[in-house]
Design a protein around this nucleic acid. Structure first.
Lengths: 151, 151
DNA sequence: CTATTTGGTCCTATAATAGGACCAGTTGTC
DNA sequence: GACAACTGGTCCTATTATAGGACCAAATAG
């Protein structure tokens, strides 16, 4: 009853997404996974999170098919956590958070990590959102249509 | 000492963003704000969250300059919470979560709320991410360059 | 003026997180 | 192979956050 609210059955895709990866640590783990981290110890060192919590989060993400537990790539007996295709689908979310943070949470000139376009060897451009016919859309150009109520 | 981890000073913009809006309720409040909700009671009814929590979250978001507390638009003595420009900058994050949820968290044919392109009167297209010279970028085409360590 | 709505505060119980002790299996060193 | 160190956890305790609801003052409705 005092169970933490579950949004697993919500009509809104945003709510369901947050139910899966909306806690305090999951998106940071996924960010690190995009940066190439794979081992339990790597995540633990990078995040400084308690091991018990990390263990719970990793299991939860594996359970949600965001991460997969695979044999270590170097042939050792240990396992590694890698992004699944579903997990890699969160790229735009991570990039969105990154660009918002860059734009609003750093003082001018304050150093921060940067996302680099490998082919061009330079920083990336802004995330964009388009209509089906190609116009760039902003928040003003859109509206959410609720799922038809049970009438 | 057992204070919840703060990421306010992190080098990574993703971490700083999550420090501001990465808790269990903030992004849902922001989603509702994009949907046009403005009053305390509207948020409370929509989310079903305890009023004390909602109060704390709203104050925190106002403090972070994501929401602003303004006089009610209908002339009453009540106040309303509206997105600031900084808050509206989270549009891409919300859209990213929405599209990921739509793609991976609903059964085929299962109904869900939809984001509509007003001008075209139809659902929107996918969020895209481009290089500075216009190519569409995916996670494989990018790498994070860490801020130069204190060498 | 009275009743209801609105927008909160405050309290208690439960759940989640932080920090660290502890431990088994794996790997590195000689 | 013996031993030490490393890795990847589990488990315990203390603190913080959340859920749910009682309560209350100001605003509005009738």
């Amino acid at each position: 009853m005092v169970r933490r609210t579950s949004l697993r059955e919500a009509d809104c895709p945003v709510a369901r997404s947050l139910d899966t990866i909306g806690d305090w640590w999951s998106l940071l783990i996924i960010r690190d996974a995009f940066d190439g981290m794979r081992r339990f110890g790597e995540f633990q060192k990078s995040l400084g999170v308690a091991k018990g919590i990390l263990s719970a989060r990793l299991n939860s993400l594996v359970n949600a098919d965001v991460l997969a537990l695979v044999p270590a790539s170097n042939g050792s007996a240990y396992k590694e956590y890698v992004l699944t295709e579903k997990g890699r689908g969160l790229f735009h979310v991570i990039v969105g958070l990154r660009q918002w943070g860059e734009a609003h949470l750093f003082a001018p000139g304050e150093p921060h990590s940067e996302l680099i376009d490998i082919a061009a060897g330079q920083p990336v451009g802004p995330l964009e959102f388009h209509s089906l016919d190609g116009r760039v859309l902003g928040w003003e150009g859109t509206v959410v249509r609720k799922v038809s109520a049970k009438t």
